[in-house]
Design a protein around this nucleic acid. Structure first.
Lengths: 135, 135
DNA sequence: CGGGATCCGTGGCGATACTG
DNA sequence: CAGTATCGCCACGGATCCCG
C-alpha cells in the first residue's frame, strides 16, 4: 500500500491518478472489477471469482477483494451459514469507475497488438531452457 | 516487464487490459504521459521532464521513456550536438491513449477523496507508545 | 546533457498450511 | 467455503558511478 507515514513523498498527494493506478494497477484488481462488472448488479461468490481467474491464489484474491472493499469500490455480503457464503458486487462508485476502465479496456484490445509488436523485436523467446539447475 | 519465461501465466494474453496496466501502472509512466500531453504536439527535453517530476531518478525517467518509446507511445528525437539534446513527444498512439487516461484522471480527481477517506478509518496513527521499559 | 550499468532495499505476490 | 498467517522469490525502483 502506498500509505507512507508522510515522510519522503511530497509529490504523491498532488497526483490522484497515481493513487488510483496504485490500486487498479495491482495484478488482479482489474480482472476482479471486470468480472464483477459483467455481473451487473448481481453478486458473485468468492469461489466463482477464483474459478474464473486461473492462477490466482486465495491470498491474493482475498487481499484484492479486501482492498477494493476498503476503498468502497466493492460491497461485501456474508451469509451467516455453515459453511459461510460471501457475495461480492460493485458499488455505485465501482460502477462509475468501471465506465472509464471499460474505455481503457477497449483501447487496450484495439491497440495492444501494436504495442506488443513494437517491442517484440527486442523480445527474445527462450525456446525451452527448462533446466532447474540448482536453487 | 511482464514477460515471464512462460511459466504460470497462461491467462495474461487473453487480458490486454492487464498488459496495458502493467505499462501505465508503473510509477512514473502516467506522469510522463501527462506532461507530454500537456505539451500537445510540442516536444519536451529530458531535463525539463526531470525538473517537473520531483523525486524521480535519471534511471527511472530514462527507463520509463525507453519503455514508452519501445511501445510506440512516445517519439524520441536526438540532436547530434555536444552536448546532445534529446526531445520527447507523444505519438498519435500516445495521444489516443491519453484521451482515456484523461478520463481516468478526471475520475480520480473527483473520487479519490472518497476512496482515501474510506480507508482512513482503518488507518490508525500510533501516537507514541514507545514506553522505555528496557531502561 | 543524456543515459547506460551495477548494487541493493522494499514490497508485491505466489505456495502452503491452518482456523472458523 | 472463506479467510488469515508465514515464508520466500524476484521484479520494481532508488542511489551511485561511469561513458557517449
Amino acid at each position: 500500500m502506498p500509505q507512507r507515514t508522510g515522510r519522503g513523498d511530497l509529490f504523491t498527494p498532488s497526483c490522484p491518478t497515481r493513487l488510483l493506478l496504485d490500486r487498479i494497477g495491482t495484478k488482479w484488481t482489474s480482472m476482479v472489477v471486470k468480472l464483477l462488472a459483467e455481473a451487473g448488479a448481481g453478486e458473485v461468490r468468492f469461489a466463482e471469482l477464483q474459478r474464473r481467474m486461473p492462477g490466482v491464489s486465495q491470498k491474493m484474491l482475498s487481499s484484492t477483494l479486501r482492498s477494493l472493499t476498503t476503498d468502497g469500490l466493492v460491497a461485501r455480503r456474508v451469509e451467516p451459514t455453515v459453511p459461510p457464503k460471501v457475495h461480492y458486487r460493485l458499488t455505485e462508485l465501482g460502477h462509475s469507475l468501471e465506465v472509464h476502465l471499460a474505455g481503457l479496456r477497449e483501447w487496450a484490445e484495439t491497440h495492444i497488438g501494436e504495442i506488443v509488436r513494437a517491442g517484440a523485436v527486442t523480445r527474445e523467446e527462450p525456446p525451452d531452457a527448462e533446466v532447474p539447475s540448482s536453487r
